[in-house]
Design a protein around this nucleic acid. Structure first.
Lengths: 208, 208
DNA sequence: ATTTTATCTAACAATTTTGTTAACGCAAAA
DNA sequence: TTTTGCGTTAACAAAATTGTTAGATAAAAT
């Protein structure tokens, strides 16, 4: 017998569930379909995770932190000078999104469908964001005063960054059908897109 | 008896279904819940529309054209000079999205969940887009040659426009919770956002 | 006045999906 | 060897959701 390659069924089910939930959402996902993906009968799924709801929560748990961290990453490392910091932030945020390309759509849908379930997440982000917005805005204003960049509202800028970095992954499959050639090579497209987004944001804040 | 205000139940059901489907998606929507929204028993829903599926298709039908038109609107009126044309296109596209703010997320989700159902839409958009991309790219190249704007790939630019114009509506409710004050006045935020997007795209194509 | 049409209800049937249970095999520990 | 616990299966039960039907009412059209 080969000792290796023993991934527990429990783990297989979790991974299958992740795929299924990410693509179909909570309502569209079927416990039987998840079990099939994992190569087990659906009784096994209930055996390990009791209910669909609990299985779902395991996945939310796993990614809640990632979501919050990713959002903050877009505002960059606070120790850098503001212009480089933003440039770096856009790039780093893009990379994080690219690592989990299905996550944003999934999470946004869940938040919209069942907002009350995520009150803790809101509060956490709100308090972190509040402080970070204020201090970053200060730096922007100071840099603008020195003529290093345009004076902009950090929240508006952040919305632009998130839009540019996240939306392409949301529409990826659809866009591929409409502009196939451009996106034929996924890796290449992603690199181009990152550069494009950095350029777009840098031009937005450049003093003119 | 008052003669006015006689909206047929059939119509009420359709409108209720639209709300429900837009918020919860096909899988999350419940025929009983739709009937409740419309103020009728769920038997009525089946009486008028037979199945959930058929009710859904009525809504897709209604909006398929809007989707395609909206996307093309982002590339502006082909009779205008290219720079103004793009400026106008961004603005016009934004307004169209703002008119149906829930539509993009809904449609994207449906397309991802059941891509095979939208093959006709793809083909239509693909053929229209192909021609429009080519001619618009020509104009951009010519204008770039004359030093009127930066040389850019129209498909990349379009992706940026769609990102900036659509994403804020997708995250609207969530964003409101995190940066409440900025978005407290919806109308005002939308106007600011439109201006921001136009500015961002104009700076992106400005010759430097 | 009669027919037609739209509206409505209540009960129920069918299907899909979720969740449970009992029994079985097997491997490792006692 | 016996026991213990994990993984497994198949069949079943329960719940949720969709879809149907028969019949009743009232207004509108003929």
């Amino acid at each position: 017998m080969i000792e290796q390659e023993k991934i527990s069924k429990e783990q297989l089910i979790l991974e299958a569930a992740e795929q299924e939930f990410f693509i179909k959402g909570y309502d569209g996902a079927r416990t039987t379909s998840i079990a099939q993906r994992a190569g087990v009968t659906h009784a096994m799924l209930h055996y390990y995770y009791r209910t669909k709801e609990q299985l779902f929560e395991r996945i939310i748990e796993k990614y809640a932190k990632t979501i919050a961290e990713t959002m903050l990453a877009a505002m960059g490392n606070p120790t850098m000078p503001i212009v480089e910091r933003l440039k770096d932030g856009v790039s780093a945020h893009f990379d994080l999104v690219a690592t989990n390309p299905l996550l944003p759509r999934f999470f946004l849908n869940e938040i919209i469908a069942r907002p009350e379930r995520y009150n803790l997440l809101y509060d956490k982000m709100k308090s972190i964001a509040g402080v970070l917005f204020a201090s970053t805005q200060c730096e922007i204003d100071a840099a603008a005063e020195r003529g290093e960049m345009e004076r902009v509202d950090i929240r508006m800028l952040l919305m632009s960054i998130l839009s540019l970095n996240i939306f392409p992954f949301i529409v990826h499959d659809f866009a591929q059908l409409v502009m196939g050639d451009l996106m034929a090579n996924r890796e290449q497209f992603i690199q181009q897109r990152k550069a494009e987004n950095v350029e777009t944001i840098m031009r937005r804040i450049k003093k003119m």
